[in-house]
Design a protein around this nucleic acid. Structure first.
Length: 915
RNA sequence: GGGCGAUUGGCUCAGUGGUAGAGCGCCUCGUUCACACCGAGGAGGUCACUGGUUCGAUCCCAGUAUCGCCCACCA
């Protein structure tokens, strides 16, 4: 049961007045997560108030985790960073818009649904009402495509939403336990109806403005997945190959040698190309040569992209072997002679440009072969023709792969949808570069990744995919009399009809019977790239189109938190969409988290079997402890997975509980720890609060610049000094007249006081003792109040626990502490007083530590040698120092040439018996 | 090949143009009435290397090495 709901305790709403709540006898972190997560949910602690204006809102574009995978410690790490920001902003007074999305769109979900339910998507099928899948469960699904039952796209999406829903519950449970201060009433799915409508509407608007277009063009193609792939999804990998030195023939019969790793593309050769300044080939420019085996005449051309020191210095340009080929083809206006098909095999029909009978015969041997087999065949043919110079030489080359694929990409010509991104337009590129310059990257050095990427784009953003599952392009094409689609005149729907599936829905003015027949219509068969949806996350989360009122209050957003490896994809594509749709950045700040490295300093990955389940981690160490570990790592810096750091976090959380319990324990109830600033009169107490004011300033500035580690470090180091030194110094005084040391303190004070009569002296002393106790208690209360707020973003559970013992409401809805208030209470005191007294106390402890006696052992007399600079501070806290050091006799201060106070001539008494 | 980051005690990391910091681990001591999921004290580092600037460099500059990452690299 949550303490907050205990109706028997008196409650007051005046924040300046203390509530007599109970401090537990024994404090513990056990069960703290469940208790407070439930309370926060009940009380709507993190509910977003949508009546607030854009200026009052701090909006976060939370990354939607992929639900088809599982969460790992890297997620816990980076999401904690975001939550710290959210909590800080909330306490600063902002209304924090912190939604959570689930990314259930894309290939991983498609595969998982196929296996889980034993189905596959076939967009040509009609929707079946109440469809029951043949299997359910990870173990029972169809293993091969043959066993899978084909279903319509709509049925497939329904199954996806269903399966994702189950995963999402587990994800949410984890996030709640971690303490993310998300408003759980605002979640979205990237394959959900709203997200699909947003993606389709945004696309139609891009299309209407000319930012989206269709083109038949050479593009990267994955032969395994049978889909086009975007530049952003490329991954360069090492790939073994062979250099083949091959002779082309000049009209005079002399050979021109080129080197190639892809001889199977010889029939696709359209030119030989060398650098314009390359002396060796000057005479050849403008002439033609014939290809070996196939006997096709091709020109020798000059182009600056040819590199004289690569291979033979003269390259065979084929359509298409690589992206340089595409560049040459485009810039030199070369013909298209494609031989590799979408299935990764050479075309079955012999190309018409191979005219010689021997060449056609040679091609016949290649027709239908995979590129790998064709390569072997061509090498044989070259060798037989005597045009292979020497034997192939093994080489390690880099080839482009689709990130999820395992075969090198081919370049094939196909009709695809593109969105302009500056890759082919300098004005757009410059505008997007400028957007990047506007964005506040944290850390700053991440900006270069954006700039490198935008600067290096070599084509527009390919957004269509030849997959079945995803958001369909909401267009149809009229069919001509021959039944061929007219791609230049797509039929578009009204935005109000979205989302829709052109495979099952019919465009206005047509009837269902006209689908696929001459004179009728056909739906666009493709779906959108996953980034085409993700790039609209602010729109999806913010209710664009569906809820314009909400959108106006949250967009443009404040923060995009994300991982460093998707700057080129998610971050950039979001900037593109927002730039076109709104002419603004989608958010003002980006917070880029690093990766988690395993102990071998490698990126944590499942395949290495070193992934720790996040829930286990939270259960074992406690959420605050894990959050502490995460919050100890700077943005943008890769961090080690360090259990030790979590243990430190746990220790800190426990210390917060224990120290708070102690600070609230003086007197009969927490009521005796008043939050009345006027009671703070003691110089040591004022000095402590002055030091805390410095911490508040530093932590606030750090958090404002997204430096949560600095804020935590400042707070933490103050807190430990507060516990080890300040608390120890003041505890006897704080007990006051009723405290166990009262007699000693009073007697000592009496001895120090020059009064006219013993009676006056006693009255004076008692008053003084009472005032001192009040000062200490008030200072402890004020400090605790501020410390709990400072820790709240990182340790939401422990701080809330303590808050509940003592105060009303949630600490997470309190104002961030204000240094000016503390300074007023501190009344100009110097924080150095605490430091000075602390070092003096350490010197006294050292005497006992070296004598190997208990810290309770009294010091009958002692002389402290100290640097003169520390004298004023130590004198100001002398009474407290005597009490904390159990100095029963004389304590003499002696200025000396030392760095820190050193106890000399110490006389130890007998250890006190236990009372 | 271009770029970004890192290199500080055994480990994980702070940090500053002027005598090097924390926590963990280690050693010693202390069952102390907030805390044994504890406390006190201590040992431990030529701040990767080589030059340069400077009165003075761990810090600034240039270069080298190693590690990680991003981009380019298929002739």
């Amino acid at each position: 049961m949550a303490p907050m709901s205990d109706a028997t305790r008196p409650v007051t709403t005046d924040p300046a007045t203390l509530v007599a709540r109970a401090v537990p006898e024994k404090v513990s972190l056990e069960g703290i997560e469940d208790r407070w997560a439930a309370t926060w949910q009940e009380q709507g602690t993190y509910a977003f108030d949508r009546s607030k204006s854009r200026e009052q809102v701090y909006a976060i574009d939370t990354p939607p985790p992929t639900v088809s995978g599982s969460l790992h410690v890297g997620h816990v790490f980076s999401y904690t960073h975001t939550d710290v920001v959210a909590r800080f902003q909330r306490m600063r007074g902002a209304e924090v818009f912190y939604p959570m999305g689930w990314d259930d769109n894309g290939l991983p979900t498609e595969r998982r649904v196929q296996n889980y339910y034993g189905v596959r998507c076939d967009p040509s099928l009609p929707y079946v009402e109440g469809f029951v899948p043949p299997h359910e469960g990870d173990a029972g699904g169809g293993k091969s495509a043959r066993d899978q039952v084909p279903v319509s796209r709509r049925n497939f999406i329904e199954l996806c939403v269903r399966l994702s829903g189950e995963d999402e519950q587990q994800f949410e449970a984890l996030w709640r336990r971690l303490g993310l201060s998300v408003d759980w009433s605002m979640t979205y799915q990237t394959i959900g109806e709203h997200a699909r409508a947003v993606a389709q509407a945004a696309f139609l608007r891009n299309l209407a403005r000319g930012e989206a277009y269709q083109a038949e063009a050479p593009g990267l193609w994955d032969v395994t997945f049978q889909t086009a792939v975007a530049q952003a999804e490329l991954e360069a990998r090492d790939y073994p190959g062979f250099f083949h030195r091959v002779a082309f023939h000049r009209p005079d019969g002399l050979p021109v040698h080129i080197e190639t790793t892809r001889p199977e593309l010889l029939p696709a050769c359209v030119a030989l190309i060398a650098h314009p300044d390359d002396e060796r080939y000057q005479a050849l420019f403008g002439t033609t040569v014939t290809s070996p085996v196939f006997g096709v005449e091709v020109p020798v051309l000059a182009h600056p992209a040819a590199e004289p020191d690569k291979g033979a210095g003269i390259a065979m340009c084929c359509t298409f072997g690589d992206l340089t080929d595409v560049q040459w083809w485009r810039e030199l206006q070369l013909p298209t002679r494609s031989v590799v098909g979408r299935d990764g095999r050479l075309h079955r029909d012999t190309p018409e440009w191979i005219s010689s009978s021997s060449g056609r015969a040679a091609y016949d041997e290649l027709a239908g072969k995979t590129t790998y087999s064709a390569r072997e065949a061509v090498v044989g043919q070259l060798r037989a023709a005597g045009d292979l110079d020497g034997e192939p030489v093994a080489t390690q080359r880099k080839a482009n792969f689709y990130e999820k694929g395992d075969k090198p990409l081919e370049i094939v010509t196909s009709r695809q949808w593109y969105i302009r991104n500056g890759g082919r337009d300098e004005n757009i590129r410059a505008a997007l570069m400028a957007r990047g310059a506007e964005l506040d990257f944290n850390p700053e050095f991440m900006r270069v990744r954006y700039e490198n990427w935008v600067g290096g784009l070599n084509g527009d953003w390919l957004v269509s995919r030849q997959r079945f599952f995803g958001v369909p392009f909401p267009v149809w094409y009229p069919l001509d009399d021959a039944g061929e689609p007219d791609h230049d005149h797509p039929i578009v729907p009204d935005e109000s009809a979205l989302p829709l599936d052109p495979a099952s829905e019919v465009p206005a003015g047509y009837s269902p019977e006209q689908r696929g027949v001459p004179g009728g219509f056909a739906g666009d068969p493709d779906v959108m790239d996953t980034w085409a949806t993700s790039s609209l996350s602010p729109h999806i989360a913010g209710g664009w189109l569906a809820d314009p009122d909400l959108f106006s209050r949250v967009f443009p957003m404040d923060l995009r938190p994300q991982a460093q490896d998707i700057i080129r994809t998610w971050l950039f594509s979001t900037v593109v969409r927002s730039h076109f749709e709104h002419g603004t950045l989608p958010w003002a700040h980006a917070a880029i988290s690093g990766f988690i490295l395993d102990p071998d300093r490698k990126k944590m990955s499942k395949s290495k079997g070193n992934v720790v389940t996040p829930m286990d981690l939270l259960v074992e160490h406690g959420s605050d402890a894990v959050r502490y570990w995460a919050a100890s790592a700077k943005l943008g810096t890769d961090a080690a997975f360090e259990v030790g750091q979590m243990k430190i976090g746990r220790r800190l959380a426990i210390k917060v509980l224990n120290a708070s319990k102690f600070a609230l324990s003086f007197g009969d109830s927490p009521l005796d720890v008043p939050l009345d600033p006027t009671l703070v009169t003691d110089p040591l107490d004022r000095a402590m609060l002055a030091g805390l004011a410095v911490v508040v300033d530093g932590a606030t500035a750090a958090l404002e610049s997204y430096d949560h580690t600095r804020a935590l470090e400042l707070t933490e180091s103050f807190f430990w000094t507060f516990c080890d030194d300040y608390l120890e110094l003041v505890k006897d005084r704080a007990y006051g007249a009723g405290g166990r040391e009262a007699g000693t303190a009073a007697a000592q004070s009496l001895a120090d006081t020059s009064a006219d009569s013993p009676a006056d002296a006693l009255a004076h002393t008692l008053a003084h003792t009472l005032a001192g106790a009040r000062s200490a208690r008030a200072a402890l209360g004020l400090a605790l109040d501020v410390l709990l707020r400072l820790f709240a973003p990182v340790l939401p559970f422990a701080t809330e626990e303590v808050w509940s013992w003592w105060r009303t409401g949630s600490v997470h809805r309190q104002q961030w502490p204000d240094a000016a208030t503390l300074r007023t209470v501190a009344a100009g005191a110097d924080p150095a007083v605490v430091t000075a007294a602390g070092t003096a106390l350490a010197a006294l402890r050292k005497v006992k530590s070296e004598a190997k006696v208990s810290m309770r052992t009294p010091l009958l007399s002692v002389t402290l040698a100290l640097p003169a600079a520390l004298r004023p501070g130590i004198e100001a806290a002398l009474t407290d120092l005597r009490a904390a050091g159990r100095v029963t006799g004389t304590l003499e201060l002696l200025d000396d040439e030392v760095d820190v106070p050193v106890a000399m001539a110490a006389e130890l008494g007998e250890s006190e018996p236990r009372s």
